[in-house]
């Protein structure tokens, strides 16, 4: 039983060590990590600026519409853009993952 278990573990580790898998992970990390840092920075800029720079945020842009509201509104478009950009990149990751699975099966 324990032998079976460790050969099983070795098999998974062998896949993990394949260069294609390593490359896929690296590509994902190169994309997802900066994306996360970007959206978190963009999002937390809103409460931080509202709290720390009320004069800047209260500046009127047109009529009563101020920087704070436009910045809040821009968060919607930021979210949609990040989501769409990610889904395009993820389609490429899917293809690479699919190739790895295909190789393993053949």
């Amino acid at each position: 039983m324990s032998d079976k278990k460790s050969t099983n573990e070795e098999a998974w580790r062998a896949i993990e060590d394949r260069p294609e898998f390593r490359e896929l992970l690296a590509a994902k990390r190169r994309f997802i990590l900066p994306m996360c840092l970007f959206f978190l920075a963009y999002y937390f800029a809103l409460p931080l600026l509202v709290g720390l720079a009320p004069d800047l945020m209260g500046k009127k842009v047109r009529g009563p519409v101020n920087v704070a509201y436009l910045f809040a509104l821009s968060q919607f478009f930021m979210t949609w853009i990040v989501a769409i950009v990610y889904s395009r990149a993820a389609a490429k990751f899917d293809r690479r993952a699919h190739e790895i699975v295909h190789d393993l099966e053949s």
Partner: peptide, 8 residues
């Protein structure tokens, strides 16, 4: 790790 990223 492998399963999370490949769906195996």
């Amino acid at each position: 790790h492998v399963r999370a990223h490949t769906g195996l």
